[in-house]
Design a protein around this nucleic acid. Sequence first.
DNA 1: GCACCGATTCAAGCACTGATTGAATCAGTG
DNA 2: CACTGATTCAATCAGTGCTTGAATCGGTGC
Lengths: 203, 203
Amino acid sequence: MVPKTPSTTAEAGTARERLLAAAERALLESGYERLSLRSVNVAAGMNPAAVHYHFGSKDALVAALLEDRLGPLWQDALADLSARAEDGVPPSVADLVDVVITPLVELAADPLGRLRLHLLARFVLGRRRGLPAAFTARWFGLEPWARLLRATRQDLTEREAARRWALAFALVLQHFGDPLADAPGEPAPPGTLRTFVMAGLDA
Amino acid sequence: MVPKTPSTTAEAGTARERLLAAAERALLESGYERLSLRSVNVAAGMNPAAVHYHFGSKDALVAALLEDRLGPLWQDALADLSARAEDGVPPSVADLVDVVITPLVELAADPLGRLRLHLLARFVLGRRRGLPAAFTARWFGLEPWARLLRATRQDLTEREAARRWALAFALVLQHFGDPLADAPGEPAPPGTLRTFVMAGLDA
DNA sequence: GCACCGATTCAAGCACTGATTGAATCAGTG
DNA sequence: CACTGATTCAATCAGTGCTTGAATCGGTGC
């Protein structure tokens, strides 16, 4: 599961990509709180209004970066699990948790991945504007996850399953993305987190 | 369990308290991200350097507000539970979780309490400078909690118990404090959270 | 009462911030 | 070539946390 490569969409043009690359470098260097649009514009060799022209706002720049650099990590695995569940072989709760956690562990193994997790956690947990609803739904639509949990735990209501997943994702995102920290470091090994979340979902 | 009353320490003087009160009002009105020191200074009827003179920085102002307004919610209950454990009656995991959650539910019942939870979550989860180490240890020293958990679950190492509590507090603080939101609203009823955290600790 | 000294208050100023504005330039089309 | 929409540009705005040096205040000792 590799991070998504930079967009080469023809109509996006070079200016947008230069701004995204400059923003990513600045974020890596000094973090989200100190991200200055002026320095992004300068680093991209453009005028001071470039970010606003192309993206509309600071948040939208970062949201665009996220959307461009981070694909839907769980989409394939989620489709597999859903297909299995329909074949009468529902995944265990451990399977579900591992599907969620494994790609995050990989992402967190290098600074660029960690930056992306950090931004994702900030935007999702902060419910920041800028991310298109489609992006958020693709990432954090809880309905498929709730459905899979209930395939094993048929005693849970749909609402209860969704609530549990909301808590699980909140904790997982916080663990891997450390959204409130200035400079997110390497997360702790996920053993305890895995145990905790599995138990919480299967309570 | 009432929020702590404003400090009446003689050497703090009127200026500090005026600034704290003005800051609290501004925070209630427009939230942490939009807290402007100029407006706090004006609202307190003071000159533009007052916050810096008395507190040193914006973060330190808010940390001082937190420290002044929010006492150690769990101190008494923690002492009770520790005494019982020493008498050979260890608390159940449910008892532990209820001790943590109950005062937070009360705080979250009104906007002022929610503001304080929000600030607490921001500072603690963001590991913000400004809070004295003693304050943080009093609030989030995990050792007594780990000890109580291990009184029931003697199979857990001290490290594992502490790790589980770190996750539990992170999730609980996020749930009640919603630290990344601009305007924290009322948290969802804590039933699912309680179940989730209890299961996670007792996994 | 006066001088001294530390604490406090004050206004002005600094460098920086996201965002806006109107003009200039560019590139494609008929 | 003229037109048009897209893009770039520099200047500007209102606001930000923070610093600075001067003025004022209040307490103390002589």
